[in-house]
């Protein structure tokens, strides 16, 4: 009897202690950025999201490791992070990490891994049980941007010209952009008018701003009146050029309208901050289904557009705003296949 009480007591004590210890120490998180934070506002948002999640859960601030420019080192860094056993959850991003994270997840079955906006199926058919992957439907982004560009180039906006040409500019060539984003952009534009032509420029540098300006100049001379700028600070040169030439820009991933409200008409957004926050919070609550993949896009509200931006509301003609909302709804309802049929 006595012993039972003692055992129960000890059991409760241990349980409470363990619970408090776990609760106190909590799961710790490390984030590996495959690249440099500065080049990519997306990563900055990701980190903010992760920090918010930790704050809400009352945990230590996540450790952020910048991968730098040596692509070959990311995998080793991920292994190092896993090998330390200091972190419960390792988060990393993009398609380029898919292969590595699967490999490392298999190496360290006790460690939990999360891949955000990367297509895990590039690496494996069978997702390791300690890995959760969240993929963004970048085709939704591309389609929205393309539809908007199409509407603008056909509109009566003061700087929209007669020619049915829209542009897209990227700092470098990426398979994910080439295979998904650009075709979706084209589809979006062609949904407005099948005669719209898409012109693309690649800068070949993430940092050469003047190159961005010069490439934009060439596009405008070709008759392009609106350019979608993919990530990369080098593209900032194009904003400046568009301002001088009196043309339009569509921002990508983050809302940059405030930089040049006259020029940047709209931005296709990715609410990755919320998404990262949600994923991590679920992970902290042990509700994240590890071993599976989630695909999020317009439907989940992760991909959206700057519908609420005051500058957008003020400067973009109402009929375009309405058409965009309509398009967004149809995307959410799955009525549109952004990549065509």
């Amino acid at each position: 009897m006595k012993s039972k009480i003692i055992i129960t007591f000890i059991g409760v004590f241990l349980g409470v202690t363990i619970f408090t210890l776990v609760g106190f120490a909590g799961p710790s998180t490390a984030i590996l950025i495959p690249g440099t934070i500065g080049d990519n506002p997306l990563f900055q948002e990701d980190i903010k999201g992760a920090k918010e999640a930790a704050e809400i859960a009352g945990l230590k601030e996540p450790k952020v490791v910048e991968g730098g420019d040596d692509y070959a080192s990311y995998e080793k860094k991920l292994i190092s992070l896993a090998a330390t056993n200091q972190y419960d959850i390792l988060v990393t991003f993009t398609d380029s990490m898919a292969d590595s994270i699967v490999k490392v997840a298999n190496m360290f079955p006790e460690q939990k891994f999360i891949l955000v906006y990367g297509d895990i199926h590039l690496a494996t058919e069978e997702i390791p049980p300690n890995l959760f992957s969240s993929k963004f439907r970048s085709e939704d982004q591309g389609y929205l941007a393309g539809y908007f560009a199409g509407l603008v180039t056909k509109s009566n906006l003061p700087n929209a010209n007669e020619e049915l040409k829209i542009g897209i500019m990227m700092p470098d060539i990426y398979p994910a952009w080439n295979d998904i984003l650009i075709p979706a952009y084209e589809h979006g534009a062609k949904a407005v008018d099948p005669n719209i032509e898409v012109i693309q420029s690649v800068l070949g540098s993430w940092v050469d701003v003047s190159k961005g300006a010069q490439a934009a100049k060439m596009q405008f001379a070709q008759g392009v009146d609106i350019i979608l700028l993919l990530t990369g600070s080098a593209c900032m040169g194009a904003v400046d050029e568009a301002k001088v030439e009196g043309k339009y820009i569509i921002g990508f991933n983050t809302n940059i309208i405030h930089l040049e409200p006259d020029v940047i008409l709209g931005c296709v957004l990715i609410n990755n901050r919320e998404e990262v926050k949600n994923i991590l919070l679920r992970a902290y609550k042990n509700t994240l289904p590890f071993g599976t993949e989630e695909v999020v896009g317009a439907k989940e509200g992760v991909v959206s557009f700057t519908f609420d931006d005051p500058n957008y509301k003020q400067r973009v003609p109402e009929e375009i705003q309405i058409a965009m909302l309509e398009c967004y709804k149809r995307l959410q309802n799955g009525e549109i296949n952004p990549l065509g049929d």
């Binding site: 692509y71 993009t94 398609d95 990367g118 060539i173 994910a176």
Partner: peptide, 17 residues
């Protein structure tokens, strides 16, 4: 060289060149 790694001799699953 990068041209080959992106096009003719690339791994489409790599997610990069």
């Amino acid at each position: 060289v990068t041209f080959f790694l992106e096009g003719p001799f690339s791994d489409p699953k790599a997610g990069m060149a």
